[in-house]
Structures are given as C-alpha cells and as structure tokens.
Design a protein around this nucleic acid. Structure first.
Lengths: 237, 237
DNA sequence: TAGCTATATATGTATATACATTTAACGACG
DNA sequence: CGTCGTTAAATGTATATACATATATAGCTA
C-alpha cells in the first residue's frame, strides 16, 4: 500500500505540465524553492525530481538563472531507424506494410529475459513487414508490455507504425540498439523474399519510458537493400 | 584555484579502479559507507558520485546487495567503436593486433570519390587485424589524407591503434558511420579466419576535423563474434 | 526437513541546514 | 555615459541524520 515516493509525484507534476503545454519548450519552470514550498517538501527532494528530468533531457538548468524546458530533441545516432515510414517517404518512395500477426500472448522465457519481466507476463506481439515501393525492406518483430500501452491491439497499423503509436502513448526516455549481422531464418527468408545466403542486419531495439522497459523489437534488414547511416557531432577530444 | 568537487574525486577513484581492472566487470565495489569513511565525506556525497556512474552505465546497484561494475559490452554510441582496444580491455580480455600493411600510396578512383579528393592525392593506407584473446574480431582498412597527419607511417601500432593516434593529432569534429551487412571478401575471410558464409557487419567510417575530411575506413566484423551496442537518451515527449 | 523469523547489511528516500558559485540587475562613482 | 562593485536570486555541493526497503543468512520451529 506504499504510495509513490514524493519526488516521483513532483516529477509527474512537472511532466504533466510539459505534456499539457503549461510549461512550453524554452520556458522557465518554478524554482526549487517554490516547488518545495508548494509540495511541502525539502528543497533536496525537489532537486532529485528535477535532476532525473534533466537526465532524461526534458529539462536544462542554468545556475543563477533557473530551470527550463528543453526545446531541442536530442539528435539520435541511428535515429533514422526510428521512423522507417518517414525515411522511405523522404526518399520520395512509396511506403506500405503488411501486418503478418498481431495478438496478445504470454512472455516466453527468452522474451521475458530480454525484457526483464517474469515469464508469462502479458505482452502484445506484432509482426510487420515494411515495404518500399512494394519491396520488403524490414521485418519487424515486436513485443510490448501490455500494461504499459493499452489499446495497442486496436491500432490500425496500415498508416502509422507501431513505433509511432508507442512514442505518442509514452514518452520514450531511452533507446538501446544492438546491431549484428546474421543470416535470415526460414521465416525471415519467406517474409522478406530473400534466400538463405543473403546477409542481414539485425537491430535489437529496447525502449524505456521513465526508467521502465516497455518494448523489445528485432528489426531485420536484407543487407542488399538497406544500410544504416549515422552522423555524430563530437564535442571535443 | 578551486579544486574539483569531492564527489568528482570519488568518481575518478572508482573510474580508475575500473580502468586498472582493480574493479572488474561484475565485481562488487566498496559500499557507500566504506567509501564515505575512506574519503572522509558524508554518505550522500558518495551516493552522488555513484549515481552519476550508474547513469553512465558503468555501475549497477542492487538494494541490499551492493554496487557492481557493469559487465555489459562497452556502451558504444557507435562513435566509441573508435577505441576497440579499450573496449576489449574493458571486458577484461587481452587486446592485440596484427599490422598487415602500412604504406603511402596514391588515392585510387573509388578512394578518391569516398574522400572527396582528386585522384592521385597522397594517402596513407593501413590494414590491421584487431584481436581479442588472439581471435580476430575486426579487420580495419584505413585511408588517411597524408598531409593531415604527418608521422602516421612512423607510428608503432602494436600498442596504440591508428585511431588513437588520429584523435591525438587532430580533434575530430564529426564522424559518419554507414553500417551494412555483407559476406566477407576472399581477403577478409583469410585475415579474419572465417568462411565465405559468415555474415559480417561492415562499418564505413569517415571522420572530419575542422570541416575537412581526414580519414576513411572500413571496419569488418564477423557477425558471430561482434555486436554493436548503442544507448541513446531521447528528449521527445 | 521445510518454512518462518529475526538480524545484519546495503541501498533508497527524505529532511534541515550551510555555504559556494553563477548570473542578472541595480546603483554609485568617475 | 560607461564602469565597477554590491546585492539578490537561483542552482550546485556538502553534511549529519533518520527511517524505509530489499536481500541474504543464520537460527529457530513445527
């Protein structure tokens, strides 16, 4: 019956303010002292809440000035993969996809391990083939923690990808990509219309929202049809 | 003349311990209380130092158990592949390499195109096999604009990688990575000791210093022995 | 023997307080 | 009119302390 920690409540308050546009990008949020008075907590508790949000890139702080809502969306290496639909359209090509499977299931042992949840936890699983000008370029096999994204099964993925729905529902705070080279499984060969000897890039992606892991996906691209590109600005060395 | 904050000194102490392998991946570091006594600071100060390192994915904490050095693969936002030597050593393994070729040459047509210089421009070319515990894990084929990095040929690459020398010589301002999946060339098969059907990740990397392109490299990893990992904080809402 | 119960240990949260550092703004002075 | 110094405001660092929570272990009990 323990309620959430006080600093979590303050985080939620600020997060809501950002979502509701009460605090707009670039604008100043109340000072630590003000929030401490408002919530009747010590300044250090407010400090912890704000520190967390700074870590998530939602706020920036300037000593002597105040705390402000970030206006820059951190440019992400591998950001391109994030929105394959946009990427395809940006090339002036036609994007389409084919929903192979979409259902609620219980986490298997391997899935449970990847997602750090108990075996049998309810998850949504979707299998989608993304196509560029009708040619399959990516096989997406995704698991989502059911409790985190209600309404996932009712989505129409013809127009919007599952990922687009995800980022709309919960603010993604962190993404992990593990990239490897593999040969395609039988199922992948069939769905991507390639033969057994076509090397593929496989991206294993996990996303977190506010510290909680909410999705795990494997994205398989035929090496002959797809490349990942990332440009990184380096501060100083 | 202000010295560094106390918590920074404690961070450095722990970081050094990790680098020197005093604290190995998976092992337990001293408790907050112990560190507080050792440094004669309050527990909260130690807490701050450790929190920072947890945020950087260098440590993981378990309530009731202790604080441990992460054993996950070097968190390389692709940019950090640059230091494969460190990455290997951080895993507690032995790094070595084999210099296959190192000489000055004139840019061929394809190289010239990749680097955006006239054909025949003097470049240094090096071919190196990087090894983890004696097993080849990366084939590096690198071209460097000769005028940008004098002394490149005289380097001893046994201890330091070409990349380490590069970043020491010129401050890298930008890095481009293009990742693809390929099957290895005959030469790559031989040097990496793999067969023709082993899928490989090939990273094509170009680096700029102060707006000028200074190097182009292709890094080939057997998919069975190497994965790229990247974690990205996202600021979206 | 299986299971329950302290108990010790280590991290997690929270408070009240103090002083340091950074920045903007105001005002006095030349 | 511009410059310098003071002050106020805000975040940054640090301490001492208290209690909460999570985990493993040892010992007791049925």
């Amino acid at each position: 019956m323990s309620s959430k920690p006080r600093y979590q409540q303050i985080k939620s308050f600020i997060l809501d303010g950002i979502k509701q546009q009460t605090y707009r990008p670039g604008s100043k949020i109340p000072t630590e002292t003000e929030l401490a008075q408002q919530f009747e907590v010590s300044r250090m508790t407010v400090n912890k809440a704000i520190r967390d949000l700074v870590q998530d890139n939602l706020l920036v702080r300037y000593p002597g000035l105040g705390t402000f809502v970030s206006d820059t969306k951190a440019e992400s290496p591998l950001a391109d993969i994030k929105n394959i639909a946009d990427e395809v359209r940006q090339r002036g090509h036609q994007y389409s996809n084919r929903l192979v499977s979409l259902k609620e299931t219980a986490a298997s042992e391997t899935v449970a391990m990847q997602m750090g949840v108990p075996m049998g936890t309810p998850v949504y699983r979707s299998v989608i083939v993304h196509q560029e000008n009708g040619l399959p370029i990516q096989l997406e096999n995704r698991y989502v923690i059911a409790s985190a994204v209600p309404g996932y099964l009712e989505q129409d993925f013809a127009e919007h990808t599952p990922n687009e729905y995800l980022v709309k529902m919960c603010p993604i705070s962190s993404i992990e990509h593990i990239v490897e080279a593999v040969l395609p499984s039988d199922k992948a060969q069939e769905l991507l219309d390639i033969d057994a000897n076509t090397p593929c890039i496989q991206v294993n992606r996990r996303t977190w929202s506010d510290g909680r892991l909410i999705s795990f996906a494997t994205l398989t691209h035929p090496g002959t049809r797809y490349k990942l590109r990332s440009i990184t600005k380096v501060g100083s060395i």
